[in-house]
């Protein structure tokens, strides 16, 4: 667990959490109670309370801009 204002430079990936988060992708838990946006790619799979987060599929919204 990392608090939001803590630097994460020196962290290492915990055993069992190998994988990676992809830049700009959204991740969620099964109950959809949380959504995480990856703003910096890196090693380590995202998990919350022992549950791995899964990548959400992109929402097809037509571009209005």
């Amino acid at each position: 667990m990392v608090s939001h204002d803590e630097s994460v430079e020196e962290r290492s990936v915990a055993p069992g959490s190998e994988g990676s988060a992809l830049l700009g992708k959204r991740y969620t838990n099964e109950a959809s109670t949380i959504e995480v946006l990856c703003t910096k790619a890196g090693e380590g799979a995202l998990a919350m309370g022992g549950e791995d987060l899964v990548q959400k599929s992109a929402r097809p919204l037509p571009s209005s801009d």
Partner: peptide
Amino acid sequence: LFGTVEFASADEDETA
């Protein structure tokens, strides 16, 4: 922005 656009969703040849 986060509510309406997906990051890097445009193909490389898309031009507005």
